[in-house]
Design a protein around this nucleic acid. Structure first.
Lengths: 106, 106
DNA sequence: CCGTATCCACGTGGATACTG
DNA sequence: CAGTATCCACGTGGATACGG
């Protein structure tokens, strides 16, 4: 019964990485290449982008497609499980807006 | 346009603390006393519970009511902003269950 | 273009002891 | 009962340089 809370905590762990929210956001709905993501994520380093993407891949939220061409081409996209996050992301956004609104008026 | 993502990130920052999800969960719908929370949060230390509660209070999600009696009595409850999180928490839970389901079958 | 390899600063979170 | 006060381990995240 107490483990009712467990899925919530697990979910927060999985998407709680510093850049993961933004990565998931930008991957929806379109697949993106490595440097495309890098460009829209202000200030992220290559190491961090790689790391966060690998973790998301490991957790089954993101699919990594490598094309054996030169120059290298890699595309990242959301899996079904990743797509299923969109209600979470949007409710998070709605609440975040309310939160920012509250803070502003203080 | 890019700051469309900002509320989402902000929200994740606010509720992303290690125990915050669980605290918010247990504070809904009933107010709780300090040691009540401590009892349902397996393994949390006094220091951490205090710290997380203070941060949630600072962020306006939790209200702290001190009764000037002996022995001391303090009650924590959700503010309106805190209540407004319930859609987020429940969508998080729904997705978390799906996630755990996926992992189990692998 | 898409990474990996090192190295390191910093903050979060924890252990433990004490207090009004 | 509901905290503070210290001290510290550890992992996350970042800077920088190099490689296929």
């Amino acid at each position: 019964m107490d483990d009712d809370i467990c899925p919530t905590e697990t979910a927060l762990d999985v998407i709680g990485g510093k850049w993961k929210g933004m990565i998931l956001f930008y991957l929806n709905p379109d697949k993106k290449r490595f440097n495309e993501l890098r460009r829209v994520l202000p200030g992220i380093t290559q190491r961090m982008l790689t790391k966060q993407l690998r973790e998301l891949e490991e957790d089954g939220l993101v699919h990594r497609e490598v094309y054996p061409v030169v120059p290298p081409k890699v595309e990242y996209s959301l899996t079904d499980l990743g797509q299923a996050l969109s209600p979470v992301l949007s409710s998070l956004k709605v609440w975040g807006e309310k939160y920012l609104e509250c803070k502003k008026s203080k």
